[in-house]
Simulated assay, not measured.
Amino acid sequence: MTTDPAAPSAPARRAPAGAAVLREDVTEAIRAAVLEELAAVGFARMSIEGIARRAGVGKTAVYRRWKSKLHLVLDLIGAFAVDGLPVPATGSLYGDVRALLEVLSHVLRHPVASAVIPDLLVEAARNPEIADAVRGALLEGQLRMAQGIVSGAVERGELPAETDPGRALDLAIGPLYWRQVVVRDAIRPGDLDALAHSVVAGLRSA
C-alpha cells in the first residue's frame, strides 16, 4: 500500500508536560552548599533544609537529585573515589606501591576529603548504615587496587602467595591519612618515595 504524499505527517513526539530537567548549575550549587553546611555544622546536624537554603533552592530540588543527606555526601565522595582507576602496572612492587601512594595522596588532598571524611568516620562508628555506605564508597576501589598490586607481585615472585592485600593498603593509607587529614601536613614527592620503600619492606618482612 502506498502512502499518500498529501497526508499530514504524524506530530513530533514531545517530552511529557512537567518532565524533570535537572539543571547542572542547580546541581553544582547544591554540592557547593553541602560543603559549606558540613564545614558549619558537621554531618550529624546537617539538614536538607539547610543545604537548600544555602543553595538558594527549594528542598524539592535537592530531593529530586538525592534521596537523603547521606546519599548526597556519598555522591560527593564518589567524585574523587579511585574505583574507576586502573591498577598500577609498572612491572615492580615498589613502582606499583609508589603509584598507589600518588593516587591516594591526590585523593586525600581533595577539598571534599578534608571536609567530609573525618566527620563521616565519626558517624560511621555510631551508625551501621553509614559505616556500610562509607566502606563501599571509600574502601572497595582502594582495596581492588591493592589486590591487583599484591597479585602482580606474587606472580613475579616479589611477595609470598599468602600476602594480605588489606595489610598492604593499611601500610600505605595509614601514614598518608595521618599526615594529610589529621595533622594536615604537606606531602612531598620524597615522602612518597620513602613511604613506598617502607611499605615494600613491611610486606616482605611479614
Rank of each mutant, 00 (worst) to 15 (best):
R23L: 13
S47K: 09
A20H: 13
I51H: 07
A32E: 10
S47V: 08
I51Y: 05
M46G: 14
E28G: 06
A52F: 10
G50Q: 10
A20N: 11
R45T: 07
R45N: 12
R31P: 00
L38D: 12
A29C: 03
A40P: 07
E24A: 15
E49V: 12
M46K: 13
I30Y: 01
R45I: 04
I30C: 02
E36D: 15
T27E: 06
R23Q: 14
S47P: 10
S47C: 10
A33P: 04
R23M: 11
A32C: 04
E49D: 10
R45D: 15
V21G: 04
I30H: 02
A52P: 14
L38Y: 08
V26R: 04
A52V: 11
A40N: 08
R53P: 08
T27M: 02
I48Q: 11
G42L: 00
T27S: 09
F43S: 03
A19H: 12
E28W: 05
E37Q: 15
A19M: 12
E36I: 01
A20I: 14
A40F: 03
R23D: 15
L38A: 07
I48A: 15
I48K: 07
E28Y: 08
V26C: 05
E37N: 13
G42E: 04
I51K: 01
R31V: 02
R23E: 14
E49L: 09
M46C: 13
R23A: 15
A39V: 00
R45W: 00
A52M: 11
V34Q: 07
G42I: 00
V21D: 09
V21Y: 04
E36M: 02
R53L: 11
R23P: 07
A52W: 04
R45Q: 14
I30P: 01
A33E: 00
